[in-house]
């Protein structure tokens, strides 16, 4: 299963709920304002690092670039481009968007 989160973790609880409810082995793709969560030094970083034990964490590169955050990405997070986004959707038979 692929979980997609697009809301900032410091503004809404979408990411928190997603990480709590995603089952082991699932993929989580962060896009738009959600990408701030995978950057170093923030309050969401610890949650992401803990979640990486059970989940594959992805972040959309163009959204990181647009926000000036590409150089701050946590180790272990896989940065994908739009093609990688499409691949993730194609590989997973179910996608859940956390709005």
């Amino acid at each position: 299963m692929l979980h997609i989160v697009n809301k900032s973790a410091t503004e809404r609880n979408s990411l928190e709920s997603c990480l709590r409810l995603a089952t082991k082995g699932s993929a989580v793709l962060l896009i738009e304002d959600a990408v701030y969560a995978v950057t170093k030094g923030g309050t969401a970083a610890a949650n992401i690092q803990a979640a990486m034990a059970d989940l594959q964490i992805y972040a959309l590169g163009p959204d990181l670039d647009a926000r000036g955050m590409s150089a701050r990405v946590l180790d272990g997070v896989k940065v994908v481009d739009y093609g990688g986004f499409v691949d993730l959707v194609a590989e997973n038979n179910v996608c859940q968007s956390w709005l």
């Binding site: 701030y36 590169g61 163009p62 647009a66 926000r67």
Partner: peptide, 23 residues
């Protein structure tokens, strides 16, 4: 305040998402 501080980050490159870089 809050996520508003993200508006002022240096080094944005918005070409990939095709919006204006108003920073």
């Amino acid at each position: 305040v809050d996520d508003g501080v993200y508006e002022l980050i240096k080094g944005m490159n918005t070409k990939g998402i095709e919006v204006k870089d108003f920073s």
